[in-house]
Simulated assay, not measured.
Amino acid sequence: MYKGKTFIISGPSGVGKSTVLKELFQDRDDLCFSVSATTRPPRPGEINGVHYHFTDVDEFRKMISEDAFLEYAEYVGNFYGTPKKFVDEAMEQGKDVVLDIEVQGALQVVHKRPDVVRIFIAPPSWQALEERLTSRGTDSPEKVQKRLVRAKVELQTANTYDYFVINDTVERAVREINAIMLAEHCKPAERMAILSE
């Protein structure tokens, strides 16, 4: 049985990661989405174990002390993290695991698991990113500017990733990510093991 791989998907806010991932998971039962743990309270409609693993600060700190996270961070007074247990169990079942995390979290994961595959999703142009962030209508102009400043910093780290996908159309981005995942499973180290059994 194949062991699954871990794929990190990163990219600036407004690049369309959620839309791409939703499409990527269509008709794929060999893929697993890593659900993060958080200490923030659930929002209306959020389900424990589906949207997040909701926990309290004491339990989260205990998990940190037990090295139970691939990565974690504190953001606006709440903790967020990727539990190792879930990722490892899915991989043992032969499923690939997708982590949707920002660049700082990705660095933490790579430090613990150098074999992860990192995919950076970028906008087709800077203008397209500005238009997407503005047209969402969810943020004030000041917040849009903050997101753009952060996007510039994140884009500068893109060359440290294994792959670079441009989200000009969702279909093309998904096709490229599927191709990357397939190629990663065609490496000799994995295929040769089958012959030696």
Results as ranks from 00 to 15, higher is better:
residue 27 D to V: 03
residue 64 I to G: 08
residue 35 V to D: 01
residue 135 S to V: 08
residue 117 V to R: 01
residue 51 H to N: 03
residue 163 Y to K: 01
residue 175 R to F: 14
residue 162 D to S: 01
residue 26 Q to L: 13
residue 170 V to N: 07
residue 155 L to W: 14
residue 55 T to R: 05
residue 145 Q to D: 12
residue 173 A to D: 05
residue 173 A to G: 07
residue 173 A to K: 10
residue 98 V to I: 15
residue 92 E to D: 14
residue 154 E to W: 03
residue 78 N to F: 09
residue 40 R to S: 00
residue 166 I to K: 03
residue 84 K to E: 00
residue 108 Q to E: 08
residue 21 L to F: 01
residue 67 D to S: 04
residue 21 L to K: 06
residue 4 G to W: 00
residue 66 E to A: 15
residue 55 T to G: 02
residue 72 Y to T: 05
residue 122 A to R: 08
residue 157 T to V: 11
residue 107 L to R: 15
residue 137 G to W: 04
residue 85 K to I: 14
residue 137 G to R: 00
residue 187 K to T: 10
residue 153 V to T: 11
residue 132 R to C: 02
residue 118 R to H: 14
residue 111 H to S: 15
residue 92 E to V: 13
residue 121 I to R: 01
residue 190 E to M: 11
residue 108 Q to V: 13
residue 186 C to A: 15
residue 193 A to Q: 00
residue 83 P to I: 09
residue 1 M to N: 11
residue 13 S to Q: 00
residue 189 A to N: 15
residue 12 P to G: 04
residue 15 V to E: 00
residue 70 L to S: 03
residue 141 P to T: 06
residue 56 D to A: 08
residue 50 V to G: 12
residue 187 K to Y: 09
residue 161 Y to G: 12
residue 177 I to C: 03
residue 35 V to E: 05
residue 62 K to F: 06
residue 54 F to H: 04
residue 122 A to G: 10
residue 145 Q to A: 13
residue 159 N to A: 14
residue 57 V to G: 11
residue 6 T to Y: 00
residue 197 E to G: 12
residue 30 D to N: 04
residue 23 E to C: 12
residue 94 G to I: 06
residue 163 Y to M: 04
residue 19 T to L: 13
residue 57 V to C: 07
residue 110 V to K: 09
residue 128 A to Y: 00
residue 162 D to C: 04
residue 60 F to M: 06
residue 94 G to H: 03
residue 40 R to Q: 00
residue 91 M to R: 05
residue 116 V to A: 03
residue 23 E to A: 12
residue 3 K to C: 13
residue 9 I to Y: 01
residue 42 P to S: 05
residue 156 Q to W: 07
residue 127 Q to I: 13
residue 119 I to K: 05
residue 180 I to S: 02
residue 65 S to G: 11
residue 152 K to P: 06
residue 126 W to M: 13
residue 43 R to C: 11
residue 147 R to E: 06
residue 195 L to R: 10
residue 60 F to S: 02
residue 53 H to R: 07
residue 101 I to T: 03
residue 38 T to L: 01
residue 63 M to V: 12
residue 163 Y to C: 05
residue 1 M to Y: 10
residue 153 V to P: 04
residue 145 Q to H: 14
residue 166 I to D: 06
residue 99 L to I: 12
